[in-house]
Design a protein around this nucleic acid. Sequence first.
RNA 1: UCCUCUUUAGCUCAGCUGGUUAGAGCAUCUGACUGUUAAUCAGAGGGUCGUUGGUUCGAGUCCAACAAGAGGAGCCA
Length: 477
Amino acid sequence: MARTKLKDILQSEKADYQVNVRGWVRSFRNNQFIALNDGSCMANLQVVIDPENTDEQLLKQITAGAALNINGTVIESPAKGQKVEVKAESIELYGECNPEDYPLQLKNRPSLEYLREIAHLRFRTNTFGAVFRVRHALAYAVHKFFNDKGFVYLHTPIITASDAEGAGEMFKVTTLPFDNTPRNEDGTVNFKEDFFERAANLTVSGQLEAELGAMALSEVYTFGPTFRAENSNTARHLAEFWMIEPEVAFNDIHDNADLAEELLKYIIKYALDNNREDLEFLADRLANEEKQKPQNERSEMGLVEKLEFVLNNDFERITYTEAIDVLMQSKPYKKKKFKFDVSWGIDMQSEHERYLVEKHYKKPVVVTDYPKDIKAFYMRQNDDGKTVAAMDILAPGIGEIVGGSQREERLDKLTQRMQEMDIPTEEMYWYLDTRKFGTVPHAGFGLGFERIVQFVTGMGNIRDVIPFPRTPGNCEF
RNA sequence: UCCUCUUUAGCUCAGCUGGUUAGAGCAUCUGACUGUUAAUCAGAGGGUCGUUGGUUCGAGUCCAACAAGAGGAGCCA
């Protein structure tokens, strides 16, 4: 008999038919009631067995975590708590689960930190089941969004020799031996002997390659793993994370902001429409967590409310210059509550971004036209001579979620800026070629996938929204 | 990398100004239970108090170093 997923049984609420169900025991009560879960949904299926007619040995092996294959009949449940349940007719034990050794006893309410240490088992909890179902839904929604708009999914390289963007420290990729490393006469490593016959790294961004694609395919996006070797230990950073980077020919900075807002709203709506049960569970979890906090630190909205609020309201659009004005008019600035000073030209600190998003506007904010000196070489220079067409989207709770810009398409301006910033133009001939041969205005941005998963699930630590987090000092599993 | 906090049973925690044999809930084990819903009831076992060193008659408690974890900062997505 073909297996039926628990989601289908529980959603249809129909009764009086035979099923085969397979999954893992969440709990076994009263020698009679199995709460079974197969990961297809949040809820467990109650399987009722007749202890009189069940093998005693098998009965003892039905413990939390054990895997079962069950044939039975779906019936209306006589008790409260569930509409339907399965009356078991035969039970096969796939794999037992010794309770003395099993580290995941759910009734202990294990902390997220402890579950992180047993990340190979944490998928079996309600919280992580919900998080990873939502993560999947968001990933699928990203592809659907771009596909429906006619974008081409471009697979930019993971290994790259280009480190020109300066987005961060890079991981080296090499097959050279650590002892007897081949050296040049001046003592530097001779990469001519290496696999690629030159120094290579893991990518920090697919943007530059995506721009090359956009210069023919018009609309492309990348969605892949990205690596940063920075020693940053925060709840918002990973050494290996996934990034979404659309790049669109003929778009200016405003089209770019529109696209980012539309994408964010689309994928949030997709999760709300398709993962309601998971999000409501995560909302409850978050509400419980918030209860532990002092009143003034609690958020005003619940998780689902917050997501609906973001959907139903336009993102605030301001320029960097306006943002600085708002900050200088603000109470914390006047009362000297900010740790870092505010003046035109500064790179805004977390406390400043937080004030703008969480206190002043209370919704996502798109900040554009930053001073050129704090931004990357490829951003398009504005006519005022001091700002560039950069765009960041700041979200409540997690800060910068999107960073992008209109790109500098004018060859002379770009080359001049690269020289000012000591970017080797010869090595980057392929990038400059796009500006030589049929250059067009274009724009794009990067969206940190884990950050949006954090935002949608309400998880406070980025390590809890990726299956196996890689951070400084941690590469387990 | 910097600052602050934490580290006591399998998990989550309590342990006062240093003072006999270190506590709770849950989990686990044994037994009971044919309508449970974080099942319940009765009983049992389980700890070199993160590591090392120091102060002291005496350290889970005080001090130092180290380690791990968390929160914040920097950098960013």
